[in-house]
Design a protein around this nucleic acid. Structure first.
Length: 639
RNA sequence: GCCGGCGUAGCUCAGAGGCAGAGCGAGGCACUCGUAAUGCCUAGGUCGUGGGUUCAAGUCCCACCGCCGGCUCCA
């Protein structure tokens, strides 16, 4: 008998090789553990130990426990499917855990699972949980495993086995007549899982490859605690309420219509006002920071796109060309070539650099119909684009300044929590080693200097340069990709961009693409979801609504007030409808107008205003001057 | 693009082979009103588009378009 040493917390034990952690824990009276961790490795209680090990038990309270339990739930779901539709009819793909639950990709012969089937599957799962089957684990040799799963008709599992690397253990887990190829970890019995709910079913390609068959992915959410599960389900409800597509229609901000075209946005008057506010703010901030605004056309000659390389590399995403006087023109999918043309309009000296060209540039890209989504993913959108052309010596400062700019701007919109990702050199990169090192180094330094944590996406950069992506966290915790700062070693070469250095010689400049909002459409979508439609005062398309109780009697006074406010650039709307006061108040509230002023005899007589705030309720009466300065102050503070 | 679901009045939806409906919104009339829906009347539809099955098609079948949930894609 071979003995190995297992250290559990501070207790050291000597056990027979091949003993499972479950047995070890039982011997020292740890009975509530769902698994254990050895360093960063998670080991379940069913796995035999074959070498000396130091472990800490994982209990339900530990974050790692969720994953173990959710993984078992995906197996329970697989078994439920097999019991419902027949063991030979259900072919299993993969069934991993997610951040909030689990899913399983399956193929059911002769049946397509729809959301109507979910309650029955869930019921069957609960039965399996109820029966509390112990899980077992076994290991097979490759050939055995292939034979076993071939026998079961599990073609996808056989494929996975063939992809498992030589020397790696092939493990199977199962319970009561159900066996699945699985790396684990799992809880020891089906009764040990938490609260769960199946949420939806969707298509998913086998191995994520669009050329392979499409399986059905059944999603579930799971938590230990019922309250936590319900909170998550409420989160979905909340997200649904915040859906910018709904808000966009209800608040009359924008329209996307079949008749106009899929993925093409019409900005309605209120949405246009919101957009104008964003644009004005954006332009002012850019001018303050030394950017120069440019305007460039919507179409460009095919030769331009040939030089830029877009026709060779980006063509599938471009709209079809049009012919004008025997020449082809393309609608622009990007602004860069135009900005480069601006740069090249004269000979540039190092003294002109960094040159920062900015434009709210509307671009058109062909996106597959299935990916279009409200304002978030469209076919025509306006990038808040800029290109910074600089010398190698300036790179670091430029990147730092740009990132700082992006963060400060996003903060002005009420976003406080940022995630930063740096994508580094991929295998097929162009550009020299020095270029990449300088660029990547300056990206890291900039992020560190600003003091935001970042993650590295190793090899995730574009072939033409590394980049920083900034994601913002919204009010209900979702992350949205916004800003990008992207190096480009490609276009300066292709367009033969130059500057004259201090040495009186020609040099190749560095070029950086960057966007802060990403696109105006998408950013407005994010704002709407972040604020659940209740935009800050400074962004609200209508800031004040005036309601004369009797339009006839009090409308004149309301008009006076309207003019006063309008002269101070406050956005006002007067509701002159012959409706009841309550109805008009309700309407203004539903339209999420920040301030409502009611005019009646009292106000007319005392020349005051009755102010009702969306956020604070009825503020009572105040003078026009007091209200105006209150409003102007709040607007200037970007409240 | 792929898998699944869904397209009925401006909006939200009911109708599932046999007379095209409701609420909100819109227009009209009355009410003259103090902080989240006054009442009555009226108009509004090639039931996404095109084809097919049937005596008869929103309803069944096929194709296309669009939307939704995902997948894939996003140099």
């Amino acid at each position: 008998m071979e003995v190995i040493r297992v250290k559990v917390n501070d207790v050291e034990l000597h056990v027979e090789k091949g003993t499972t952690l479950g047995e070890v824990f039982r011997s020292i009276k740890i009975d509530k553990a769902v698994g254990a961790k050895a360093g960063s490795r998670i080991i379940d209680l069913l796995t035999p130990i074959r070498e000396d090990l130091e472990v800490t038990p994982i209990f339900k309270e530990d974050p790692e426990s969720l994953d173990i339990m959710r993984h078992t739930l995906s197996h329970i779901m697989a078994q439920a499917l097999k019991e419902l539709y027949g063991y030979k009819k259900v072919h299993l793909g993969v069934g991993p855990t997610t951040e909030e639950g689990f899913y399983y990709d399956v193929e059911v012969e002769g049946h397509t699972i729809s959301s109507e089937d979910l309650p029955a599957i869930e019921r069957k799962m609960r039965e399996i949980v109820e029966r509390n089957y112990p899980l077992f684990r076994k290991e097979l040799e490759r050939e055995e495993a292939i034979g076993y799963f071939t026998e079961l008709g599990e073609k996808y599992k056989v494929e996975i086995i063939n992809r498992i690397e030589e020397g790696e253990v092939i493990s199977l887990y199962g319970q009561n007549g159900f066996t699945d190829l699985c790396r684990g970890p799992h809880v020891p019995s089906t009764g040990m899982v938490g609260e769960f709910r199946l949420t939806h079913v969707a298509g998913a390609y086998w191995l994520g490859d669009s050329k392979r068959p499409m399986l059905q992915r059944i999603y579930g959410v799971a938590f230990w605690d019922k309250e936590e599960l319900e909170e998550r389900l409420r989160f979905y409800e909340e997200a649904k309420k915040r859906d910018h597509r709904r808000l966009g229609r209800e608040l009359e901000l924008f329209l996307i219509e079949e008749e106009v075209g899929a993925g093409l946005v019409l900005w309605l008057p209120k949405g246009a006002m919101l957009r104008k506010t964003l644009e004005d703010y954006w332009k002012e901030e850019h001018i303050k920071r030394g950017y120069q605004l440019v305007y460039t056309p919507h179409v460009g000659n095919a030769r331009l796109w040939q030089t830029s390389g877009h026709l060779d590399y980006y063509r599938p995403n471009m709209f079809s060309p049009m012919e004008v006087e025997q020449e082809e023109y393309f609608v622009k999918p990007m602004n860069c070539p135009f900005h480069i043309a601006v740069y090249k309009s004269k000979l540039r000296s190092y003294k002109d650099l960094p040159l920062k060209l900015a434009e709210l540039g509307t671009v058109y890209r062909y996106e597959m119909s299935g990916v279009l989504h409200g304002l978030m993913r469209v076919r025509g959108f306006t990038q808040d684009d800029a290109h910074i052309i600089c010398t190698p010596e300036q790179v670091e400062g430029v990147i730092h300044e740009t990132l700082e700019f992006a963060v400060s701007m996003l903060k002005d919109f009420g976003f406080e929590d940022f995630r930063v990702y740096i994508s580094t050199r991929p295998a097929d990169a162009i550009g020299s080693q020095e270029q990449w090192e300088l660029a990547e180094g300056s990206l890291k330094k900039a992020v560190e200097k600003i003091g935001i944590d970042y993650e590295i996406d190793q090899g995730g950069g574009a072939f033409y340069g590394p980049k920083i992506d900034v994601k913002i966290r919204d009010a209900i915790g979702r992350l949205w990709q916004c800003s990008t700062i992207q190096f480009d070693f490609n276009l300066p070469e292709r367009f033969d961009m130059e500057y004259v250095g201090q040495d009186n010689k020609r040099h190749r400049p560095y070029m950086i693409h960057r966007a802060i909002f990403g696109s105006l459409e998408r950013f407005v979508g994010i704002l709407l979801e972040h604020y659940a439609g209740l935009l800050p005062l400074w962004l609200s398309p209508v800031q004040v609504r005036l309601i004369p109780i009797s339009p006839e009697k009090h409308g004149g006074y309301a008009l006076e007030v309207e003019n006063h406010l309008k002269n101070r650039n406050i956005r006002v709307e007067r509701d002159m409808r012959e409706e009841r006061l309550n109805a008009r108040i309700r309407d203004a509230e539903l339209q999420k107008v920040p301030y409502i002023l009611v005019f009646g005899d009292k106000e007319l007589e005392s020349k005051t205003l009755s102010v009702r705030s969306k956020k604070e309720g009825n503020l009572g009466s105040m003078t026009l001057e007091a209200f105006t300065s209150l409003l102007l102050e709040r607007i200037s503070r970007r409240e």
